[in-house]
Amino acid sequence: MIKRDVLVAFSLSLLVLSISLIIWLEGYIRIATPIISSLGESYLYYSYNPWYSNYTSFSLNVVSAIIWDYRGFDTFLETTVLMASIIAIYTLLRGFEEKVFLQPKGLSTITKTATKIVIPLIIAYALAIATHGQLTPGGGFQGGATLAVISSLIIAVYSLEFLYYMGYRSKRLVVIRGLCLIGLIIVAITPLLIGFILNTKSYIFQNMSKEDSFISMPSFLFDAPLAGSIFFYNVFELLIVFTGLTTALMLLSLRDVELKKAFEVREVYE
């Protein structure tokens, strides 16, 4: 980092401030008006609205209601994109082998002890924001990303060997991930199956009852709104994102000994 670069960067940010000052003085475009799109307004109004039971999803968090109820199919395909990227990394590094019994190294005792205390608390926090995704800010993806921090901490502090010792293998994680994806599909087609049995009309990804179908997922548990299928989707999404990110972290932190075969195999093909 040279002093000249810092000066240029500072003058660049001053340029931004001066341009915005000029536009402000001239009085051009208006930003942050009180008006929002009518679609967003209707989402805000109907997301938790017991008086319109055909439109509501009983979720206090509007973003989570949009993600898993109003635009559920979109999010499902996004989850499959994550799966596809893991499979793409597998094909790139094909032929690697996991050597389980190498000597672990890791950092000093101070760091290890501090990490040991922090890990259960991170697990509790991640599960808290995932299971309360319909009540407070948070949801499946947030919880999964927070849980994946644990595996990155373990790789950084205890080394990859400790993950193998705890029973993590990338193939097992991919299997868990596939099972959770199937679970997500089962939750999505449950209303369809119930409608088929009862011989009434019902839809895929249906959450609450609609105008022409009375089938609905459970909306309350004890004293808090469960928001129907949103809770189940959040739990499955937590596991999917956690296993996906952990698999990618493990594959990208493989040692040279383990990767040697993968690159040798490729040379033979060429």
Binding site: A124, Y125, L135, F222, D223, A224
Partner: peptide, 14 residues
């Protein structure tokens, strides 16, 4: 205790 603090709500569900 940490779980209940991080959710910010005290209900039977929590």
């Amino acid at each position: 205790v940490f779980f209940i603090i991080s959710t910010g709500s005290f209900k039977y569900y929590t």
